[in-house]
Design a protein around this nucleic acid. Structure first.
Lengths: 204, 204
DNA sequence: AAGTTTGTCAACCATTTGGTTAAACTAAAT
DNA sequence: ATTTAGTTTAACCAAATGGTTGACAAACTT
């Protein structure tokens, strides 16, 4: 046997599966296509992952656990609210620019299969916002930021960060720009988003 | 023959197809399931729409043309910027609360098949934001709103309106609320979104 | 060296799926 | 009453798809 160099085949499968699943989604992905992409026989997929479903779940969990840490940052970091928003927006946008299919993939499959959410929560993969909520309420009372529900602020932050990637085809159509120009808009958003949010909530 | 009463069967097919396609997406949708939902034989689908692809396109176009008018409102209405934002957010959220699967469906299929965008643009189904852009630039110069690129403002408006629906499963998990509570959050957003945006850009 | 375990592949299988066909049925038009 | 055109169905079909099997090879174990 190939002396388990570092699990070449198994990781090759996972990488190919990631690429295909993220681009096409669970339903449209084909096992043969994943095998081809990995340059191996279709049987190997089943040898290492038993079924399409299990292979998919491996991919999904791996993808999700790339995003979770990012989200934890805004929730549980030990910095001011404004700093959190700045850091998160800058980091998140940079991250997704490198993994453009990730957010759409996760959102999509979560919509397709709501039970996944319960599973992930059960596995404690899900951060929750109670700490963030507390911090927001505090700052509202202190008169540092305008009155806003922590939930709404959280939704706004996430929306402004994630949607421009998921809705890229639509937005490109509306504002009528090519891929490069759109990418530049995303680069600008690394700071643009935080400015926009802070402008809205900060009391001068 | 049925004197084309109002195309009972044909419209039943379209409705069922809408339901199934919007819930599952093109790839996961099954012709048999659509037929079952419509309470008819599978052959009828092909009789009226020839193929899955054509049936899908009929559904997609119908869905998209329900959204386009809403978007035109913010772009081409003859009102102040602030009013546009208020109207759009209130109308759009109300609309999507009635059609919860629509945005996800459209975004999804647009990502899966970017050529659709070109097709839609060619068919002039796509509004473009040149008028909105002009209005924003004007108001920035007049000192009514803070300096911001029209494109970024547009992206922000759309993101804040659409994402909370597309990302509902994820957001529900993060903020840890049940469906009813989340729906109430969405209701609140009818005014919350506009306030948030206007707070950010308005010069007092 | 013999035997065991692990990895790989080509061929195969059962099921699902989109799509077709030909016949039966319906109701208006002649 | 018969024709005619649209509508509906059951039975089929070919292709695609996820998954299995058995042979075989390449280490590792003893």
């Amino acid at each position: 046997m190939e002396t388990k160099e570092q699990g070449t085949t198994e990781s090759a499968i996972l990488n190919s599966a990631k690429a295909i699943f993220e681009k096409k989604g669970m339903a449209a992905a084909r096992m043969q296509e994943i095998a081809d992409e990995a340059g191996i026989n279709k049987s190997m997929l089943h040898y290492y992952y038993r079924s399409k479903q299990l292979l998919f779940e491996a991919v999904f969990k791996s993808a999700f656990s790339m995003l979770a840490p990012q989200l934890n940052e805004i929730i549980n970091a030990d910095t001011s609210i404004f700093e959190k928003i700045r850091n998160f927006s800058s980091n998140y946008v940079a991250f997704v620019l490198k993994h453009p299919y990730l957010p759409n993939f996760i959102i999509q499959e979560l919509n397709r299969n709501p039970d996944f959410v319960k599973k992930l929560i059960a596995e404690k993969k899900f951060p929750n916002i109670s700490k963030f909520r507390q911090q927001v309420n505090e700052k509202v009372e202190e008169g540092v930021i305008k009155p806003i529900k922590a939930e709404q602020l959280f939704i706004n932050i996430i929306s402004l960060n994630i949607f421009p990637f998921i809705g890229a085809p639509l937005l490109k159509g509306f504002i009528n720009v090519n891929d490069d120009t759109y990418k530049q808009l995303m680069e600008d958003r690394k700071t643009e988003i935080a400015d926009f949010i802070i402008n809205s909530i900060k009391i001068k």
